[in-house]
Design a protein around this nucleic acid. Structure first.
Length: 428
RNA sequence: GUGGCCGUAGCUCAGCAGGCAGAGCACUCGGUUGUGGUCCGAGUUGUCGCCGGUUCGAAUCCGGUCGGCCACCCCA
């Protein structure tokens, strides 16, 4: 059988890999300016960590984790998301002792075993941040503002910010009860999935994509924002005020219910109409109970993460940046003697401070074919060395755009480098 | 996990009521001395995704499998 990448796993070639690195770096830099320090946690964690944080009933934990049985009954898992791991690390390294606030950011691969689609891979990359120790809506506003800044700086426009509050442990159970009461009488009209949800995860009824269900809910289902407690409502209202103040436009969306159990109060999602069904580019929410739930001192927190592959999809649909990087100087030796002369110059030109991209030809090939290749590489300058040059201690500088040729003195390397630079910048 | 469409040269694809595997682009070389792009000429490239079945004969029909795209589910 032919060897090939696993389903849903992708090779990032050339430009794609470079862009992935570049996007991560630009994001982390933006976060750093807002005081976030980097954290890099292991790709593997105990599976229990995700059971206890995301919720053992959640789709991600139930069906999408890559797990490995290790030793006796120890089950380990490739991380399907990063918040749980970060919280584990915060607790384990006691990062919250002696401080009231902690800001962390990260970028790296996540793994979910689901059916691949555009914008959905089994190994994908997320860029995100977590802010610990702040329960005030100003923290939410700052975090959401950073999300918006990130998208803006990466030239992702046409996104829409959806926000919602899913209440807290005090008020959510009451709401869920009311929701069930309202929907249950009509249970027979619901789709299969919703009938299931009614018993397993009633909140998720709200974001069913079936239009029949949606119609029913808009008729009978109470809106969650009308039923959250005073504290939660004030939090939401204050957040909306701050967002307005920051110039961040948001749309209150009662159906925005996220799939991970740890969220409370604020949830938000930046969605794009240009991504097909996988429309969330950047999403997150508040998770005030998680730190304690995973064994730490109680500590409120909020965070988000962005899907880098989805960002790349959006960028390529707006502009087509797939241009191969051109070579600056192509060294062209004619014969082995010339190679001996040229090789040290190539080495020097690649390592000096000029930053020039340098390519070396093949001394066995004809001048014609080497020049062809130099041209294909987009070389701006070619440095030719053959018998004629060797005799005189010279090297020929050829500017590819004009075809103009100049002789450079080869007597000392330093002198050569200076001349090369001068000529190169004269022509470019 | 469920369903629909797809898989032929490095790339984009044609060929498919069963009869020698194709085109464009790309690539290599050449168009007399050591000069690219444009032009002209020549040439190379295949496990037709894989395994099996039907058949005298399968890229073509059938079954399975792997991979891709899309939708559901769910999510970044």
């Amino acid at each position: 059988m032919k060897l090939q990448a696993l389903s849903g796993m992708k090779d990032y070639l050339g430009y794609e890999s470079e862009e992935l690195t570049d996007l991560s770096n630009r994001g982390l830099e933006l976060f750093a300016r807002a005081g976030f320090r980097q954290i890099r946690t292991p790709l593997l964690e105990e599976a229990e960590l995700f059971d206890r944080s995301l919720g053992s009933g959640s789709e991600v934990v139930n069906k999408q984790m890559y797990t490995v049985q290790q030793g006796g009954d120890r089950l380990i898992a490739l991380r399907p998301e990063n918040t749980a791991g970060v919280v584990r690390a915060v607790n384990e390294n006691r990062l919250l002792s002696n401080r009231s606030q902690l800001k962390l950011c990260y970028a790296g691969p996540m793994f979910r075993h689901e059916r691949p689609q555009s914008g959905r891979l089994r190994q994908f990359h997320q860029l995100g941040l977590e802010l610990f120790g702040r329960s005030d809506p100003l923290a939410d506003a700052e975090v959401i503002w950073l999300g918006q800044q990130l998208l803006q700086q990466l030239r992702i426009d046409n996104t829409k910010l959806l926000i919602n509050s899913i209440g807290c442990t005090e008020c959510r159970p009451d709401y869920i009860e009311k929701l069930i009461d309202a929907v249950e009488p009509a249970a027979e009209k619901l789709c299969q999935d919703c009938q299931q949800r009614l018993s397993t995860n009633p909140l998720r009824l709200l974001d069913c994509k079936n239009s029949c269900c949606q119609e029913l809910y808009s008729d009978v289902a109470p809106s969650i924002v009308d039923h959250i407690c005073d504290g939660c409502r004030k939090h939401l209202e204050q957040l909306q005020e701050y967002l307005a103040l920051l110039g961040v436009e948001s749309f209150l969306t009662a159906s925005l219910v996220r799939g991970l159990d740890y969220y409370n109060r604020t949830t938000f999602e930046f969605v794009s109409g240009d991504l097909g069904q996988q429309d969330a580019v950047l999403a997150g929410g508040r998770y005030d109970g998680l730190v304690e739930q995973l064994g730490g001192e109680a500590c409120p927190a909020i965070g988000f993460s962005a899907g880098l592959e989805r960002i790349m999809l959006l960028r390529s649909s707006y502009n087509d940046p797939r241009v191969d990087v051109a070579v600056d100087c192509y060294f062209l030796p004619i014969g082995k003697q010339a190679l001996y002369k040229i090789l040290p110059l190539v080495a020097a030109s690649r390592s000096d401070s000029s930053g020039l991209r340098v390519e070396l030809g093949n001394p066995e090939k004809t001048v014609k074919s080497q020049l062809r290749r130099a041209n294909r590489y987009g070389a701006r300058a070619v440095l030719i060395c053959g018998e004629q040059e060797l005799d005189k201690g010279l090297i020929t500088y050829k500017d590819m755009a004009s075809g103009e040729q100049t002789a450079l003195d080869l007597t000392t390397q330093k002198k050569f480098a200076e001349q090369l630079k001068r000529l190169y910048f004269k022509f470019n």
